[in-house]
Every structure is written in C-alpha cells, then in structure tokens.
Amino acid sequence: MDDLEYLHAPGKRLYIAARQRRADPTTLGQLVLHLPAFAFSLGMVLVVGRLFELAWGLPLWLPVTLWLVSGLLVFHRPTEDLYARYVLGFRYPLPHELAKLGPVWREVTGRAGIEGDGYRLWIENTENLNAYAAAGHIVGVTRFAVESLPSAQLAAVLAHELGHHTGGHSWSTLAGRWYGLPCRAAFRAGHAVLSSTDSVMVRGSCLVTAVLLAGSSFMLLGPAAALLGGVPLVLLLLPYATAALSRRAELRADVHAASLGFAPMLTEVLLAMENAGTPTSPAPGTTGPRGAVTRSGPGAQLLASHPDYATRLHRLRPFLTPQR
C-alpha cells in the first residue's frame, strides 16, 4: 500500500485551516499537572532572587521575569534548532532523504490544511522505527523509517506527529519540562545527598525532623494539617496521572492520522513495530508513535507513557470499516 493522492498536483485545490494549532483537553490536563512543579520552581527562583537582592541590590522581579521569559526562547526557531541538534541528537536530512520526506510531508500537511513550511524535518541517525514531535516546530524521524517504510506508511507516521503538534501536546510537554527544571534539579540534588551518605544518624535525623514537623503542624493547625498531609499523596499520584494523559495524547494523535485517511497505513506500521518488538522509550521532551513502554513490577501499565499495541489497533478499527 504505497499509493498517495498528492494534493499538490496540478489542478488540485489546497485548503488551509483557519486554526493551525489548538490546545485540546489532553494538553490542558498536562498543563494542570505541571502546576505543582512550576510553583515549586517559582519558589526557588524567588529565594535565589531574594539572595541576589540582599547581596547585590538586584530587584526581585528581574530574575523572576528572566526565568519566565526564558521559556519563550525554547520555541524560538534558532533555539529549537540547537535543541534538536545538541539535546535530541538529530541532524538535517540528507538530499536523498529530503527527496522522499518532502513530498510526503507536503501531502500530509495538505490533507490537514496545515502550513507545512512552518515545521522543520529532522533525522535521528538510528536503526529503530521511530518518529518524534518536539517543541513547537520539530518533526523527527529515524533514518531507518525513511529508508525502509513505503511512502504511504511514512505519511501515516508523519500524520501522527503532526497530530501532536496541532493538538498542543508537544509544546506543553516541553514547557512543563522547562519550567519544572529547578524543581527536578532540587529533588535530584536532595536525593544525591541522601544517597551519598551511609550515616544512619543523618538519615534518621531527616526522618525524625519530618515526623516532628508533621506532629507540630497537626497540633498548631488542627484540621488544616489534613490538607497539608494530602500534598505528599498528590505528589505520589502525579506520575500516574501524567502517564494516563500521555497515553491519551498518543490515541488522539492516532485518530488525527486516521481522520486524514491514513488508518490502514498506520495499522500496518503498528503491527510491524509490535512484531519487531520496537523499543518504546521516548526521548526527553518528545512525543511519538511508539507503543507501550516495557516495564516490570506492580502498576507497570499505569506508568506506561504509551498505550499497548492492542489498544491502539482497536481504536483504529472503526476507521478501517468502509462507511455506508
């Protein structure tokens, strides 16, 4: 199945959608789940800003403003290019790769009514069958996928990635990671300090301090301490909620590709990936067409960032049935 109806052929009319991007419910849910890390990071920036104010007289609003504005630079095209090249490890397509990717990408964006020139195509130089959507304009695909997939199946993969961009999944993922960076850095530093010491006294003192703080809070605040006690529970549930929304985003991207007429091709790709046992761990700050991440232990399915292949194939089945 390698036939594509190229909309850019002579005599074809191309329609451009009025809304090139949107924030679907999955994106809004992701942003809500990022709020705790954002609040913690903001608190750290405020503390650092206060120290700068006391030491050098810098106004408190300056570091806070710089930190907030820095997130916009992540979606600046030159900065995105640096992110794709040096963080994700992508490269520009070679001439023969671009010769295949270009017409396929124009077909996909033409069907969706999207300005394809607003995105940049990248290659991951690996032998895996994968693709990625990242930041605001990055669409990556592996060299193996370009060389081995027929044009129709490659179009289905790219349509899936376009669905992540038009649904807002990609930019919300990167924004959450960027603004949560101080929070993650603080937790990793604390974990490293505790892991590096073999002193039972140090670890015991941390536990005693936590118990004393909890007891003092209950005595001083009474019922209000119950609300504070719920904070750790919320933090424990965040990974499960984040994984659930990630799985939902993958299903929405599948539906996007299917709605453009690529359901049969995407089904073939997923079956091939399932049979090949394709690795499914996503690159940081990216989304893609991979299946469920392989995990072991209790609750593994609840922490998987991608749905299992059976679920994805089941969701595509209605698009394979001819409409009467």
Rank of each mutant, 00 (worst) to 15 (best):
V211K: 07
T27S: 06
A244H: 12
V269K: 01
A134R: 02
S246D: 12
A9Y: 11
L51D: 15
R295A: 09
V146K: 00
M273H: 02
W61R: 11
V208T: 07
L227I: 10
A152D: 04
A249Y: 06
E5M: 10
F319G: 01
R85Y: 14
G49P: 02
A224Q: 15
A243H: 05
V104E: 02
L82G: 09
S172Y: 04
G204F: 02
Y240K: 12
R317L: 12
Y179D: 00
A263W: 00
V141H: 03
G190K: 06
L94P: 05
L221N: 10
T126K: 08
A145V: 00
V234F: 10
E274Y: 07
A300K: 12
H169S: 07
R315Y: 13
A210D: 04
P150W: 04
L270V: 01
L207N: 04
N125R: 13
V293F: 10
L72K: 14
Y15A: 14
N125L: 13
A9F: 12
V231P: 02
R177S: 13
L66I: 08
R188T: 11
L73M: 14
A175T: 05
R85S: 09
Q30Y: 09
P63Q: 02
V234P: 01
E124K: 13
G299S: 09
P279W: 03
F38Y: 10
S199F: 08
R184N: 11
T242D: 12
A253P: 00
T109F: 04
L303G: 09
E80R: 05
N130R: 03
L7T: 11
L245V: 06
N125T: 12
L266C: 03
Y92L: 15
A243I: 07
D117E: 15
A99K: 08
A186L: 12
A99N: 11
K100P: 03
L260E: 03
G136I: 14
Y309G: 11
V141P: 03
S41M: 03
P223M: 07
W56H: 14
S151D: 08
R22N: 13
